[in-house]
Design a protein around this nucleic acid. Sequence first.
RNA 1: GGAGAAGUAGCGAAGUGGCUAAACGCGUCUGACUGUAAAUCAGAUCCCUCCGGGUUCGGUGGUUCGAAACCGCCCUUCUCCA
Length: 376
Amino acid sequence: MNPVTFEITHVCKQSGARTGILHTPHGDVETPMFMPVGTQATVKFLSPEELYAMNAGVVLANTYHLWLRPGEDVLREAGGVQKFMNYKGPMLTDSGGFQVFSLSDTRKISEEGVTFRNTLNGDILFLSPEKSIQIQNAIGADIMMSFDECIPFPATRDYAQKSMLRTLRWAERGKNANERPDEQALFGIVQGGDYDDLRYYCAEKLVEMDFPGYAIGGTSVGEDKETMYRMVKWSQEKLPVDKPRYLMGVGAVNDLLEAVSLNIDMCDCVLPTRLARHGTLLTSHGRINIRKAMYKHDFSPLDEKCDCYCCRNYTRAYLNHLFRTEEGFGTRLLSIHNVRFLLRLMEDARRAIHEDRFNDFKQETLAQMKFDERGF
RNA sequence: GGAGAAGUAGCGAAGUGGCUAAACGCGUCUGACUGUAAAUCAGAUCCCUCCGGGUUCGGUGGUUCGAAACCGCCCUUCUCCA
């Protein structure tokens, strides 16, 4: 019995994009959706109450980082990450696969797994598919991810193939290692770089293993938009229609809308919270940096169309002041706004799909945001 | 009134003869950020500019091939003593 199941509720007649419901042990969430990232068992600067208030749904946590601190023993004692951080909604853990990419300076990959140099204290660490699942079982999120290798772009065909085949073997090993299959669902991850046949092959092999959901990895690692969308398109073509599709690490507005067009149901990204910490906010007219002098005397809300706590109560001038004085409240307010902004974008996307007008919605939204050539 | 110390770019502060248009910090301005080693990082910040050029280190007059730096005078500030 799969702990996580998916049902499609509508397919847009105009675009083919779909809405659905993801059923999890911690509640149902509507798709397509955006998932905020809480790497170290906290979405930086946001409380669980704030996440509920903005209808956050699924929240991510990270296997590698929680393994280092506080350690799997603490997570077990706590009764899982949800109890630990007091988040009552569904959660998902990334496997540490992204750290194979992002910590590439300090790691070595072998068939057995990946050796990391602990960036905190220099210790040698070893993460394997089995170990990743063991830790993810301790963390206890509703959805676990296969331990994969997220390869850089560009990568040679030879390397992309070898890595993808190894990621497939790791997926099989991870699946066999899951000790809580009735409580925690494990998703497979499609890799294969920028090579169509590798993407197809990987997806087909994963489907043979029969996962309750499938992710697309190895994107948004520095490639251009066209390449990224191509990789997503290839990756999802061979996936079963009735299983959730998760595009990993994508959160720019235009990318999210493109992902929905490509039948993606779930996306996650650190972008809204990171941008917030750096003073950049998302609005229906594009990105702006609140530190700019032009906002010093601007007593309008961040985004007049936004329904978030920040926009309902505070002005650009006040946020400008909070950022210039480095007051942490400003970081919290912008984080609330940016996360809510993307959640609402997806709510609007779902509504447009139900109304069979997603293509129109996408076009209108992007036009309003005045994208430059590089994108949002 | 006497003794001493100091005046460097928006601010603070290095620099005591050429490698100095002048370190560094702050401030200011730009840009970046996509499964978080990121409340971070990169660039700019005397003026005009494409190469390049033009004016600077309280003021002024000197010394020198060459001065922010050495000398004289002046102005200003600070500390201590009366």
